[in-house]
Computed example of a mutant assay.
Amino acid sequence: MRSKLFVIRGEIHRSWYTTGIITTFAGCLLLWSVLSYGSFVEPTFLPTPTLVLQQFLHQMVNPEFWNHVGISIFRVSMGFLLAVILGVPLGILAGTYRFAEALVVPSTEFIRYMPATAFVPLIMVWAGIGEPAKILVIFIGCFFQLVLMVADNTRAVSKDLLEVSYTLGARPGQTIEKVLIKAMLPDLMNTLRLILGWAWSYLVVAELVAASSGLGFSIMKAQRFLNTDVIFVGIFVIGLLGLLTDRLFALCHRRFFPWLEGGK
């Protein structure tokens, strides 16, 4: 069994996989405990796990905290959905037709290297400081990456499948709908899963735009008063929410495409 651990793409027993997960998290917790309980780092900068757990339990019964969670979920969902609604069709178009690729891909490649944070001042001018501005930050952080990745997913579909559909008499529109889109769906779901992770990572940036609610706002507010335990709780909750949405995508991938090897 041990020799199989170092086989390229080799399968290992589920217990070994689980052991690896537990070991990683236990190692991080141990290092954190040693540094904090051992007073190697000032509590102001690194609170103990016990203090963070107490703060977490306190926040769980705090209605204001759940309001922050709800508004953050709303902002991430809206920014992500807007990026999907506009980005997926554009990506499919760019991956299907060369003329569309020439129109879309070069400019998108250029803009995607511009950090979303650099757009914050412009967004405040364009959209004000309300909810649309915060959603727009998340949208910009996701949209341009999504277009390029969907275009790559589209181009990855075997050309032989398209040729077979033409041989069977399918029209171009039918080929796109019945063959191209269906063939790219597994990769598209993985792309959306990755982009949703980026949406969560842009949440704190979005909530810098004159926010008075949300997890990012609560983290920044705690930073001003050096309440690092509250900062840790906010970071962990964002991570947990991101993990839950990621696992939901993974579950859907397994249910919708059970024949795919490694569909996790």
Rank of each mutant, 00 (worst) to 15 (best):
L5F: 12
F6S: 10
G10W: 05
E11I: 10
T18W: 12
I21Q: 11
T23Q: 07
T24R: 13
L31R: 07
S33P: 08
V34W: 12
L46P: 05
P47I: 08
L51C: 11
L51T: 15
Q55W: 02
M60K: 03
N62P: 04
I71F: 02
S72M: 02
A83G: 04
G87R: 01
G87N: 06
G87D: 03
P89F: 12
I92Q: 07
T96D: 09
E101Y: 03
L103D: 00
L103M: 06
T108I: 02
E109F: 03
R112Y: 07
Y113C: 08
M114H: 04
P115T: 00
P115Q: 01
P121S: 05
L122H: 10
I123S: 01
A133H: 00
A133M: 01
L148D: 01
M149G: 02
D152E: 14
A156C: 06
D160A: 15
E163A: 15
V164I: 14
Y166N: 15
Y166P: 08
T167G: 10
L168I: 13
L168S: 11
Q174M: 11
T175G: 12
K178W: 12
K178D: 10
D187H: 08
N190C: 11
L192A: 07
W198S: 04
W200N: 00
L203V: 04
A206V: 08
A211Q: 02
G214H: 03
M220D: 09
K221I: 07
K221E: 09
Q223L: 11
F225Y: 14
L226W: 12
D229L: 09
I231Q: 07
F232H: 02
V233Y: 02
I235M: 13
I238P: 00
I238L: 14
G239K: 12
L244I: 15
D246E: 15
R247T: 10
L248I: 15
C252A: 15
H253V: 14
F257S: 07
L260W: 10
K264V: 15
